[in-house]
Design a protein around this nucleic acid. Structure first.
Lengths: 234, 234
DNA sequence: CAAGATCAAACTGTCGACAATCGACGATTA
DNA sequence: TAATCGTCGATTGTCGACAGTTTGATCTTG
């Protein structure tokens, strides 16, 4: 295995875990909207662009396929997943299901350290709100929710959350702007944490439902507002 | 693309969706315990055995990796996933989380047709109970639970269920015998369906909790009873 | 005899090549 | 003119090969 010829502009891919790196690059390109939904992912093109051969690209594509970012059409290639309104509903429905459970478990496992982590993350959310960087804001938002799943202590659930988040990142990225006032978003996390600290399952579920349900409705509204997705190139 | 040289004993792989077929064969070998947990999956070996090259085998392995049946160690290869007691807990915890939700949704979407499907499946469970075919019994059991997820109408949730089921099949396959009397198993599905037909969310959740919780405890007990998993061959 | 160094075989990661297939475009025909 | 067919370039699916790494065995040395 040798070092890879430097692709233009981007830092060169080094030699370990090429597949993982290609997967990350592809994911980036998709959630940033550089590869719009419905567009064809030409193996040779990606390979040339990244300065690798097609084999690692194909393997990475399989990963993203399993993650739901790509769709494979045998003999026709990989295509960037297109989302419809009911996809949004599915994702949020599943997310609600997972996060309710995670929050209840997290409350059960809560220690002073993990509690502080959550509090600190809400602070970060407030700080980020001033930065006018929607992508960053979304990222820090997920980090809070991810923390809850982490604290819940079920690794499979955490992976599921990550998968859902990567699909959502794609959707949010396409919407292009934040669906709400950043400070407002930061604030709405507080009752969730409060409920977790209080530790009453019903209250936790209620607050998680409210919080996620809010995002669900907002995203759903925006998606329906801009129905023809941004130019499914090719 | 040409036809594949016939592997010994098994029907030859034809030319379409080679990756999918290899994946199925591998899954089979794993859940049947022919590839024991911890064992190394040698790409060239599998490839030779199936009469294909290593490329499709690698791609299939990536699929199974994402599904959790294989673990990839960079530069060392793919290994059959090993389950510990806490894996069982994670899987059942997640399954509980999903099936509660699915059952409530299924109740909401229930039509006379889907209701009959569920009833019929319980009959099948009873019929299968007489056959003394544990694998079949487990399969029909899953089919009932899968039906609920199907009726719930969230495709992502259905896929998640399938992934969990394939992990569980592997575990159950390793245990080798059924964890309970087949007729008893068939019977315990009835209250779940009854609750879904009645349509009270709390009752549905309670019955699903009881049903799945029972399997959880039984499987957990058996796993702890036979702690050293069957010879992690090499 | 144990611990470390040395070496060979086995295996993985990646590549380039080639045939089969797809899709677009233009020619042919009714 | 519209529909069908054939051709050609572009792209996928698969393969065999090669380089570098890991592994396990053997040999060396304290």
């Amino acid at each position: 295995m040798r070092t890879i010829s430097p692709p233009v502009g981007l830092p060169a891919l080094n030699e370990i875990d090429l597949v993982g790196q290609v997967a990350r690059r592809l994911t980036e390109a998709i959630v940033q909207g550089r590869l719009p939904p419905g567009s064809k992912v030409v193996e040779a093109g990606i390979a040339r662009e990244l300065g690798v051969s097609r084999a690692p690209v194909r393997e990475a594509a399989r990963l993203l396929e399993q993650q739901g970012l790509l769709v494979a059409n045998p003999r026709r290639g990989f295509f960037v997943r297109q989302f419809a309104a009911d996809d949004i509903d599915e994702i949020y429905d599943l997310r609600l299901c997972v996060e309710r459970h995670a929050a209840v478990l997290a409350a059960r496992n809560l220690t002073p350290e993990t509690r502080d982590k959550l509090r600190r993350q809400i602070e970060v959310l407030h700080e980020t709100a001033d930065l006018d960087d929607p992508a960053r804001q979304v990222e820090e938002d997920y980090r809070f929710h991810r923390l809850i799943c982490e604290i819940a202590g079920n690794r499979r659930m955490l992976r599921l959350f990550d998968d859902l988040a990567s699909e959502l990142r794609m959707v949010i990225g396409l919407i292009g702007r934040l669906y709400d006032d950043p400070h407002e978003i930061a604030r709405t996390h507080e009752p969730v944490l409060a409920a977790i600290e209080a530790g009453h399952p019903e209250r936790i579920v209620a607050h998680v439902d409210y919080h996620i349900g809010h995002a669900w409705r907002e995203v759903g509204r925006l998606v329906r507002e801009i129905p023809p997705w941004p130019a499914a190139a090719k």
